[in-house]
């Protein structure tokens, strides 16, 4: 019976091998900081939870997988209860057409 792939030693030219190692840190602080950042841009709890739920956003979704959906929601709400949501009004002058190739 051949050796299982997971038990085989890494090949020297294997492009998939890990190069760098982990360093101790606090993912909870990371989550708090990200929530504060986006609350400064006007994201409320629902907007933020949507960021955490979306698997396309690796940073926030990774934290959601780490803490679980319930704890993530609780943590988001705890940060917002402390720092609030900054309401900002952004005006581009003149208003920009994001798709200029498709007419005004």
């Amino acid at each position: 019976m051949s050796e299982h792939p997971k038990d085989r030693p890494a090949e020297p030219e294997d492009p998939f091998k890990m190069f760098a190692g982990g360093v101790e840190g606090d993912p909870g602080l990371m989550l708090d900081c990200l929530v504060e950042e986006y609350s400064r841009m006007g994201y409320d709890a629902d907007d933020l939870i949507a960021l955490f739920d979306n698997p396309e956003f690796l940073a926030t979704h990774g934290l959601r997988n780490l803490f679980g959906p319930e704890e993530t929601r609780e943590r988001v709400q705890a940060v917002l209860a402390r720092c609030g949501v900054l309401r900002v009004t952004v005006t581009a002058l003149p208003p920009e057409n994001p798709f200029p190739c498709h007419g005004s």
């Binding site: 409320d44 709890a45 709400q77 917002l80 209860a81 720092c83 609030g84 949501v85 900054l86 309401r87 900002v88 009004t89 952004v90 005006t91 581009a92 002058l93």
Partner: peptide, 17 residues
């Protein structure tokens, strides 16, 4: 020198649980 963007910080808001 034309003004092209304006961002106003209105206020911090809180949503009641």
């Amino acid at each position: 020198g034309e003004e092209v963007a304006r961002v106003t910080i209105e206020e911090p808001t809180w949503t009641l649980p």
